[in-house]
């Protein structure tokens, strides 16, 4: 005799754990979004786009790939790299700014790879993710990107 009750129970625990990790991960970015809004005194949001091979996409193409409209139907559309590009946008605008940084999630959320400038940092948990994000947002290069974004909004 056998049954799958224990296995199903294990799976439930793992699913709960995954949801909790994902929630913790999302909270890092929502906090960063709130802090950025306060910092630059504009209502902004962080948009996450699939990165595709072959470089920077136009906002239209980024949005198209994001919602999967052309993916798989068009030979000109390039392969997704597995990374998400994080772009800043003013709420209500559909014009995302250039990439602030990139990240790649694992199937179990962590480890997460964060790419900023030439550095690729691997984070095994939320504490390390927060540590890395603090390092990124305190860098001069990140702040120059924010400044450019604000300048573009003011034009």
């Amino acid at each position: 005799m056998f049954d799958f009750s224990d296995s199903l129970s294990d799976g439930k625990d793992k699913a709960d754990e995954l949801l909790s990790l994902k929630e913790g991960f999302n909270s890092v970015f929502s906090t960063l979004q709130e802090n950025l809004s306060s910092f630059i005194e504009r209502d902004v949001k962080l948009e996450h786009y699939h990165e595709v091979e072959g470089g920077d996409l136009s906002p239209f193409m980024a949005a198209t790939v994001q919602i999967g409209m052309l993916y798989g139907n068009n030979k000109d559309i390039k392969k997704r790299t597995g990374y998400f590009e994080v772009r800043l946008t003013e709420k209500g605008s559909d014009n995302p700014y250039k990439v602030l940084f990139k990240y790649k999630e694992s199937s179990n959320v962590y480890p997460i790879n964060i790419v900023f400038q030439r550095n690729e940092m691997v984070c095994s948990n939320q504490v390390e993710l927060i540590d890395v994000m603090k390092e990124i947002v305190s860098s001069g290069h990140f702040n120059l990107r924010i400044r450019e974004f604000v300048d573009a909004l003011n034009k």
């Binding site: 030439r118 550095n119 690729e120 940092m121």
Partner: peptide
Amino acid sequence: QEHTNLIKPYMG
């Protein structure tokens, strides 16, 4: 080609 630095944060 361009290089990337692989960094692991650990205990600060």
